[in-house]
Amino acid sequence: MKVIFLKDVKGKGKKGEIKNVADGYARNFLFKQGLAIEATPANLKELE
């Protein structure tokens, strides 16, 4: 799953980066902790 990092995550990505991560990792950790959001077309447009 592609995500947009909202904060730096050690060993995974830095704020503003778009990366592929495991679905479970994204849903169970990154999204719940507010560290990333899903890289949907709408979210990508907001990032620009």
Rank of each mutant, 00 (worst) to 15 (best):
M1D: 04
M1Y: 07
M1K: 06
M1L: 14
M1E: 03
K2S: 12
K2I: 13
K2F: 14
K2M: 15
K2E: 09
V3K: 00
V3W: 00
V3P: 00
V3Q: 00
I4F: 06
I4N: 00
I4V: 08
I4Q: 03
I4Y: 08
F5M: 04
F5S: 00
F5P: 00
F5Y: 05
F5G: 01
F5W: 03
F5E: 01
F5R: 01
L6F: 03
L6H: 01
L6E: 01
K7W: 08
K7R: 12
K7E: 10
K7H: 12
K7P: 00
D8S: 07
D8Y: 08
D8T: 10
D8M: 03
D8A: 06
V9P: 00
V9S: 02
K10Y: 13
K10A: 14
K10V: 13
G11S: 06
G11D: 08
G11V: 01
G11F: 06
G11W: 06
K12A: 15
K12H: 15
K12I: 15
G13A: 12
G13M: 03
G13T: 02
G13S: 03
G13I: 05
G13P: 01
K14P: 01
K14H: 09
K14E: 07
K14N: 08
K14I: 09
K14R: 13
K14L: 13
K14Y: 11
K14S: 09
K14V: 09
K15N: 04
K15I: 08
K15M: 10
K15Y: 07
K15S: 06
K15P: 05
G16I: 00
G16H: 07
G16V: 01
G16D: 05
G16L: 04
G16T: 02
E17L: 03
E17N: 04
E17K: 02
E17Q: 11
E17G: 02
E17S: 05
E17A: 05
I18A: 03
I18K: 02
I18M: 07
I18D: 01
I18G: 01
I18H: 02
I18S: 03
I18T: 06
I18P: 00
K19H: 11
K19E: 03
K19G: 07
K19Q: 08
K19D: 02
N20E: 15
N20W: 15
N20P: 07
N20Y: 15
V21E: 03
V21A: 03
V21F: 04
V21K: 00
A22G: 10
A22Q: 11
A22E: 15
A22T: 13
A22H: 11
A22M: 11
A22I: 10
A22L: 11
D23N: 10
D23F: 13
D23M: 12
D23H: 13
D23K: 13
D23W: 12
D23T: 14
D23A: 14
G24W: 15
G24T: 13
G24K: 13
G24Y: 14
G24I: 12
G24P: 11
G24A: 14
Y25S: 05
Y25N: 05
Y25L: 08
Y25D: 06
Y25R: 06
Y25V: 08
A26K: 03
A26Y: 13
A26Q: 06
A26H: 04
R27W: 12
R27H: 10
R27E: 11
R27F: 11
R27G: 04
N28D: 15
N28Y: 12
N28M: 10
N28H: 12
N28A: 09
N28P: 00
N28L: 09
N28I: 07
F29G: 05
F29M: 09
F29R: 06
F29S: 07
F29L: 10
F29P: 04
F29Q: 10
F29W: 12
F29T: 11
L30P: 03
L30T: 00
L30I: 01
L30D: 02
L30Y: 04
L30N: 00
L30E: 02
F31K: 04
F31H: 02
F31I: 14
F31Q: 03
F31M: 07
K32S: 11
K32D: 12
K32I: 14
K32F: 08
K32E: 14
K32N: 08
Q33G: 06
Q33K: 13
Q33A: 12
Q33Y: 15
Q33S: 09
G34V: 02
G34N: 09
G34M: 08
G34K: 09
L35D: 03
L35P: 00
L35H: 04
L35S: 03
L35G: 02
L35M: 08
L35K: 03
L35T: 03
A36H: 00
A36L: 02
A36E: 00
A36I: 05
A36S: 01
A36V: 07
A36Q: 01
I37H: 04
I37Y: 05
I37V: 13
I37Q: 05
I37N: 02
I37E: 04
I37S: 04
I37M: 10
E38Q: 09
E38L: 10
E38F: 04
E38V: 07
E38T: 04
A39H: 06
A39I: 05
A39D: 02
A39M: 07
A39V: 08
A39F: 13
A39E: 03
A39K: 01
A39L: 08
T40P: 05
T40Y: 05
T40G: 04
T40E: 05
P41W: 09
P41Y: 09
P41G: 08
P41R: 09
P41K: 10
P41A: 12
A42H: 12
A42D: 12
A42V: 09
A42E: 14
A42T: 12
A42M: 10
A42R: 11
A42L: 08
A42Y: 06
N43I: 12
N43M: 11
N43A: 13
N43W: 06
N43P: 04
L44Q: 06
L44E: 05
L44Y: 06
L44D: 05
L44S: 05
L44V: 11
L44N: 05
L44W: 06
K45Q: 13
K45E: 12
K45H: 11
K45M: 12
K45N: 11
K45Y: 10
K45I: 12
K45R: 14
E46V: 12
E46P: 06
E46W: 15
E46F: 14
E46N: 14
E46I: 14
L47T: 08
L47S: 08
L47G: 06
L47F: 12
E48P: 09
E48W: 10
E48F: 12
E48G: 13
E48D: 11
E48R: 14
E48S: 13
E48Y: 11
